[in-house]
Write a protein that binds this DNA or RNA. Structure first.
Lengths: 332, 332
DNA sequence: CTGAAAGCGCTTACAG
DNA sequence: CTGAAAGCGCTTACAG
């Protein structure tokens, strides 16, 4: 009922051949007589035949699809990530099976399980999942690449942002432009990137400018949260000539407060963020750009390489962001 | 090799039962002895058994997955659309197979074909596809809902934005706030929504304020394009007290020019857009909000209803946007 | 170059 | 309540 379409058997019948022959031309095998091929093609055409992927998967143990498990789908980050994945996947002729876990560990495991038989491998961005969870969820021996996974399991390739490299570039830039009192607005403490950025900020300051104070305020990645922090900072009377936020939204919050108060940016205070969201370029914010779609593309390319047994050993791979200098730090 | 996982046969062997019994507990059928169930469950657990979806699809002719074909994945619109679809899909326990067509007609047809056997139905947003193409691409009799399809084929449900309704609300709002000379910045001529908005603008003006001039400038949906248009408009010396752009990006371009020139908004000129992108709220732009995630959600819900043979007849369904009044039109 | 047959991993009448 | 068997639509050795 649901599927009243023609099958390979119908094609064979119409072409007066065996299903084996039909299958051969379907898969482009060489050993087929030109005339046979022609008859098959014609029959397929008149019947509007399209092979059934499930049947094919079952006999080849290959689905030509990859599973994607993401924590969420909210915002530019994920849409760019998926876009990059899509580019690489369609280049390599793979379909994408998408699933979100909404920060729910059990759900991620289920999603992955439900993909068994449908996918040849998976890309998993699920910070909550332990290596043990992954072992449970991933079909045994099925390739997977992790994105932003906190732990290494020695089994899977793991793609992460080079937070240390990015922070170092930005701190260097701020110091080079003469800033002496840089305040770092950190992101939510549970976020791995936030933690790495904060740590990297402290380390880099100590390494590059041991004489300068290292100031960190703990934020939550939101603009409104950052506004409060900056207001408190101003109220405290503490001096500062640069704010380096762990993401752009916080940087924008900071900007808003400074401008409202009448503090000139970058004259009195430089402001910088991290991510390069669309708003950043619109509002001329200096930031670290993560080419997120590249990130997704890399992940799929790596997975595809693994699927072709054509991949170097799994490692932790860091993708370094690039410094985008704009008006909020432009002057010296 | 790729799939060395346990099969139903392994479970049956370990539990010393037939595969039929295993299948029954797997599918929660009632007619199973409690003890049998227990043994099966235990065997599944020790083997880490997960059923193979391809095999299951093949025998049930049901995949519990839906296909999504989108023109692109760029930007907020698509990420929100997919997010809404994901919500509805996971609620209804369906997986999503995602594919983009990049404005390529043949590619969309291929993508849809490649989904045969993997999906129970599809959501297709592919303006380029004719009803005839769809008939070719969609597995015969397989349900599909269209999103933003220009043509009705009488077969499939079609979800579209209520451009006329939205434009009417906005024009009414502008007129109510005393605007007399409203300029409409139209979007790209090939875009169906752009065309509808433009037409609706002209019609609404004629209907609600026949004495007022109807002014339309043809734009391209970009902020930079709109900047040029507004500069030309200013240079022409023509008077106007409101700009209603066919999308937010153009409205923002207009805003930029007006502010640069020193024209007060909304004092001298009101500015309004369409879409309610994140930038709009950030920059306090009056606009028509399309709840895009709802749009995606509706599409999937409709499809799921069709899959359960539980849907009213297919129609053209319009989703009406809501007016979001903000600072750029606030005063009288 | 071609066909008959087994098999991929499930589900589901059909008997019992 | 349970099992043997057929069948879902393909692919792929194996003969010929």
């Amino acid at each position: 009922m649901a599927n009243s379409s023609a099958t390979i058997r119908d094609v064979a019948k119409l072409a007066e051949l065996s299903v084996a022959s039909v299958s051969r031309v379907l898969n482009g095998h060489g050993n087929v007589h030109a005339d046979t091929r022609k008859r098959v093609l014609k029959a397929m055409d008149t019947l509007g035949y399209v092979p059934n992927a499930a049947a094919r998967s079952l006999s080849t143990a290959r689905s030509h699809a990859i599973g994607i498990v993401l924590p969420d789908l909210h915002g530019e980050f994920f849409s760019e990530l998926v876009r990059g994945m899509d580019m690489a996947a369609s280049d390599a002729n793979y379909m994408m099976l998408l699933s979100t876990m909404h920060a729910d560990r059990e759900r991620a495991i289920q999603a992955l399980s439900a993909m068994r038989g449908r996918i040849d491998g998976a890309i998993v961005m699920a910070p909550q999942l332990s290596p043990e969870d992954l072992r449970r969820a991933l079909p045994a021996g099925s390739p997977a690449v992790l994105v932003n996974s906190p732990e290494e399991d020695g089994q899977h390739h793991n793609l992460r942002i080079d937070n240390r490299g990015g922070v170092t570039l930005m701190v260097r830039h701020l110091l080079a432009s003469g800033r002496k009192r840089i305040v770092h607005l950190a992101g939510v403490a549970e976020n791995l990137d936030a933690v790495e950025r904060k740590q990297a900020f402290c380390d880099t300051m100590k390494a590059l400018a041991p004489e300068l104070p290292v100031r960190v305020l703990d934020g939550d990645f939101t603009d409104t949260g950052a506004e409060l922090l900056v207001q408190q900072l101003l109220a405290s009377g503490e001096e500062f000539d640069a704010i380096f936020a762990a993401n752009d939204m916080m940087a924008l919050g900071a900007l808003k407060v400074l401008r409202t108060i009448g503090i000139s940016v970058p004259g009195q205070v430089a402001v910088a963020g991290f991510d390069d969201i669309p708003l950043a370029s619109f509002l001329d914010l200096t930031t670290m750009r993560i080419e997120i779609s590249d990130f997704g593309k890399r992940a799929v390319e790596r997975l595809v390489a693994e699927l072709s047994n054509d991949a170097p050993p799994a490692t932790l791979e860091r993708v370094t962001p690039t410094l985008i200098t704009r008006a909020t730090t432009a002057s010296g």
